[in-house]
């Protein structure tokens, strides 16, 4: 039982990292970035390229190499997120929602099949964090899990501080509340939106590298499912709410671990989508979201 909790929290921390980008982007420009899951996938491939480029990675060296790949992949995916926003989303700001959503689907498609066309599919991740395991209270915990979880938690804390304590973070929150007002108050809206995309995408990229290192295999559609799950997590926490996304990710990981345990692993994803639909129907504002009246 406690094993389920630990596994759930571990997977949930990945979801949380990806959900953050979803939630931040939605919070600031009310866009559901369908391509966000694919940024995660690209992070995994960027990490793969970096690690392969370094050449044979010795086991002793693996943690350092992994952190290096993580940083590089974050830079790549962050930059890519900014590029996508600039090329595909910014020209459509103010367009009907349908048009923007369809564009996001197009971006997702381009990224997925772009990677597939580059012939990079599927690949075995060059660094596999194999490590010793401990038994704690009857729970099997591996060093790799601990390390990855520590990185995830570290990133989340850093983000939380950034958003709540810096002027950019303040500007982000200002735009989320009132884009026109923020513009009038001299906030450089475009710059802040770019930065939001950078941070969100970098976090997803980090999650991609971590997933590659942990599961050992990457492929071009790996972002599709996690994108959906991250969205679910973001909705559970209250979309647009950063702490909500973290909470939602962990919670979804837990729910999934238990759901898969009791229903059978093959129903795991069905269970997740059912959770999503129930949440959207019963409490669309999520656990930490605020009620927003949108009419007229």
């Amino acid at each position: 039982m406690i094993q389920l909790v630990w596994d759930g929290l571990f997977v949930g921390s990945f979801y949380a990292l990806v959900a953050l980008g979803y939630s931040m982007v939605y919070g600031i420009i009310k866009l559901l970035n369908f391509a966000h899951g694919d940024i995660y996938m690209l992070g995994a491939f960027a990490g793969f390229v970096v690690l392969s480029g370094v050449g044979g990675v010795t086991a002793a060296f693996s943690v350092v190499a992994l952190v290096g790949a993580l940083v590089a992949a974050m830079a790549v995916t962050g930059g890519l997120g900014v590029l996508v926003e600039r090329v595909a989303y910014r020209p459509l700001r103010g367009s009907p929602r349908l048009a923007v959503l369809i564009t996001a689907v197009g971006v997702s498609f381009t990224l997925e099949y772009g990677v597939a066309a580059a012939g990079a599919n599927p690949r075995v991740f060059p660094v596999r964090v194999e490590s010793q395991a401990w038994q704690v209270l009857g729970v099997r915990i591996t060093l790799a899990q601990l390390a990855l979880m520590a990185i995830a938690v570290g990133l989340m804390i850093a983000l939380d501080r950034y958003v709540n304590r810096t002027s950019t973070g303040r500007a982000m929150r200002a735009i989320a509340l009132d884009p026109k007002g923020a513009l009038l108050m001299g906030v450089n809206v475009n710059a802040v939106i770019s930065r939001t995309f950078f941070i969100g995408s970098a976090l997803a990229g980090a999650a991609g590298v971590m997933a590659g290192a942990y599961y050992g295999k990457i492929e071009f559609l790996m972002g599709f499912l996690i994108g959906l799950k991250a969205f679910t997590a973001a909705v559970m926490g209250g979309i647009g709410n950063i702490r909500g996304a973290m909470l939602g990710g962990l919670l979804l990981g837990l729910l999934e671990a238990f759901g898969a345990h009791f229903l059978g692993g093959e129903w795991r994803d069905v269970f997740t989508f059912a959770v999503l639909i129930v949440f959207l129907s019963v409490k669309p504002t999520g656990l930490l979201g605020e009620r927003v009246s949108e009419r007229v």
């Binding site: 090329v87 595909a88 369809i102 564009t103 689907v105 197009g106 971006v107 997702s108 498609f109 381009t110 990224l111 997925e112 099949y113 772009g114 597939a116 066309a117």
Partner: peptide, 10 residues
């Protein structure tokens, strides 16, 4: 082909 479709969509 699908990359092309995605780009066309955008």
């Amino acid at each position: 082909r699908y990359v092309f479709f995605g780009v066309v969509l955008v």
